[in-house]
Design a protein around this nucleic acid. Sequence first.
RNA 1: GGGCGGCUAGCUCAGCCGGUUAGAGCAUCCGGUUUACAUCCGGCAGGUCGCAGGUUCGAAUCCUGUGCCGCCCACCA
Length: 890
Amino acid sequence: MNKEFHFSEVEGRLYAEWERSGGFAEAVDFEKKSYAILMPPPNVTGVLHMGHLLNNTLQDILIRRAWQEGKNVLWQPGTDHAGISMQVRVEKELVGKGVDPKALSREEFLVHAERWRDTHGNIIFHQLRNLGICCDFGKKVHTLDGDYSRTVLHGFVELFRRGYIRRGRRMVNWCPVSQTALSDEEVLVRECPGKLYRLRYEILEEPGTHIEICTTRPETIGGDVAVAVHPEDERHRHFIGKHCWRPFCREPIPIIADGAVDKNFGAGALKITPAHAAVDFEIGQRHGLPFREVIGPDGILNGLAGETLGGLDRATARERAVKLLRVLGNFVAEEDHVSAVGISERSGEPIEPRLSEQWFLRYPGVDLAKRAVAEGWIRFFPRRWEKTYLRWLENIRDWCISRQLRWGHRIPVWYRKGEDREDPRHWHVSVDGPSDPEHWERDGDVLDTWFSSAFWPLGTLGWPDEESMGRRHFAAFFPTSAMVTGPDIIFFWVARMVFMALEFIPGKDGKDDDLSGRVPFRSVYFTGIVRDERGRKMSKSLGNSPEPLDLIARYGADGVRFGLVTCAPQGLDILFAEGRLEQGRNFCTKLWNVCRFRLLQGDVGAKKSSVGAILLRVDPKNLDAIDRCILENLVAVGEEIERAMGNYEFQGTLLRMDRFFRDDYCDWYVETCKVRWGKDLRRQATLLAVQDLILRRLLQLLSPFVPFVTQELWRQLGFGDGKEILHRVPMESAEWLRAALEAADLLASGGELASVGELRQVLPALRALGAGDGLYHGGTPGECQRLEPFRELLPAMSGHGELKKLQQLEGMTAAVTSWGTFAVASGGDGGRDSKRRELEIVRGHIATNRKKLEDRSFLERAPAAIVDGARNLLAENLEREKKLLRLLSE
RNA sequence: GGGCGGCUAGCUCAGCCGGUUAGAGCAUCCGGUUUACAUCCGGCAGGUCGCAGGUUCGAAUCCUGUGCCGCCCACCA
């Protein structure tokens, strides 16, 4: 066996083998419980980043544990066609090649896009393989696949039929760069420093008199159709019903009263531009105002904006407008003002509120979606995200689902040629289209990508086609078990999947109140966002993200996985620290070496190394307290891990295993084995069997976290038949193990646990004594008797050779312990200072506890156990003080 | 404007359904190692638990207020 774990050699070999020999293959047995995770489908344009690394590591851990628990397992991979970002990407590519994308027909463009997708689209999965994830990529689904598209279109048609989808002319968020509508969720609101302009419009009926208004967007003045004031605003009351002059495209416009105006903001009067502001639009509707559009879909102002503003972009037009207003005498003042500006998530450009004809979805089953989470049918980890989810549902608004793009699912609506498009009587809505297509024209828009993603749990499991649902085991895997994703897509995706599932999956036996079978997943684990050491979100544009594949090459997949998990606390963002990965790599090396050491002591022997087979090699008569304690620990760790994993405490679980492995097993148990090895062959065999029991279980427990090194060691140690795939080997539950070890009488009693625990605590004190010619011990007869079984062990473990009787303290450095006084010969008064420090601490404890015990209310009100604890501590420390004083006075 | 989260050792974080002396890893420093592992082992030092009140015999932990930092939501132009 090599001295080091050469991960680069092992990882490639094992991964290929897992794939080849069915390590990821589905094996559905309806007698068993099922476990399913839908991998959040990465964008086809995406490349691997740190977030994917973390996210997929966590899913892989859950999936491998599910295999170990003997469940039916589905980890569904897939990719998302990523509407806008993909289209932008392809357009850029085309422009680079000298092709004008706009000159291409829809079909020509799609050919290019599909070609791009098919060459670049699966890169991320190839990259993910390096992480070792046990996902069957053969099951991959792409949102534009034929089957999946049918799911999406069917969903649309059904929602339309049920009255949730409507076509309408409404204000939408318009991205002038992509020239498409966006949903509210795709708009980022950013605080932008700008100016608030105070302007005056002259009153038609009272020449020379003005009304003052405030605006941040003077370039839209051409679109003003009114000025509104609050109906109860004394300052402006007398203007209501009169008119004022619009400065650009000079025309009189009415002054109206509307409650939506805030009296306390600015001048208390608001110019109304229904075509370019949502609030203004509503006010316009209420008052039957006309509609003047002055900005085109491309963000360029038109002739109605004012004679010299036409043809300018919004920013330039604003500057020009201000200059004009000064010249015209309408300008009063300007002040700095921070306003909330909607920014397109994709293009980064300001959104233009714009009236347009779009398809809207009124969310179905809002109350059900609330109940699903509020009543715990779906559980969120960490829980606090429930509030975010619920609050969003409280203020939910219709979702604009149509996009003026080419890349995506084309809306399955046809309009009869030559008829009024706005008249539903001339619409055809179906998945397959009309039977006489020559008389119809299909809607040119596509659906929001997130609309198609909302059907992911349904579509990937074959819905709505019964044959397909059977083939994909819908019955076994729906509802899926866990969803692992980022809180940033809680609205975009998580909530919408909930809506769709609840809408389309009926309750069992018509019992719709029981949501258990209707939710898309039973729990959602929200990961944190991976940030760099300075707390900035890792991103390519900032250049602060390490190359994931590079990290894997340097630390090994296991090292990276270990590192990521240990620096990812539940519910908090992750401050990425590369040092963690190094610790991960070191962990693997240590695991490797302790197994190597095991092999150096002798063969594992029986090749069939089930727990039962190993137990046969353990003779309870040859076990001492130390052996029983480590076995007890082994069981307890398993129990803690099961609890922790049930709560998705990945970090806690791994750190707990790490602690058991290093502190309990390597540094304590293995070291004591060396000392206790002896000459008795049966005793030796038992010690090895105990090691095997521990290593076997440890490898299994660790396998989901560090799959490669554990798999390789499983073979090297000779567990299994040499071909076994570790994560497919069933793992005994902690409960089973406890029962088995208890039945074989291998677990420590409470007394043994306490005794060994103290033994371990004494060691550091002995080591701190420094070097001498041996270890001297003195104590009460009771103390000496307790030490007896460990006479060999203590001095050896502390590096002091043999144990001698302590005769006198002069010239010695001593440690007072619960096992008596230990000392080594020392030159001078070495150790005196540390004794003094110890005395200080001891006296501190004495004072604290004495004070407590003198406090009557403490004695009266504190529970008896606490009071007793304080008494014991006081007594103990008084005793230690006495000994220390004796030592110091020698 | 509303909401959520964080603030504990130089750094990253545990602890937070109140209870013995507030922990771990990393970094620093000191020491160890012929016999699995220097990708190792041990130890020293380092914290008035953001701040201020309150409840309590007892508060890092519960309550109130407050300060920074971050995130999310929101039609005051």
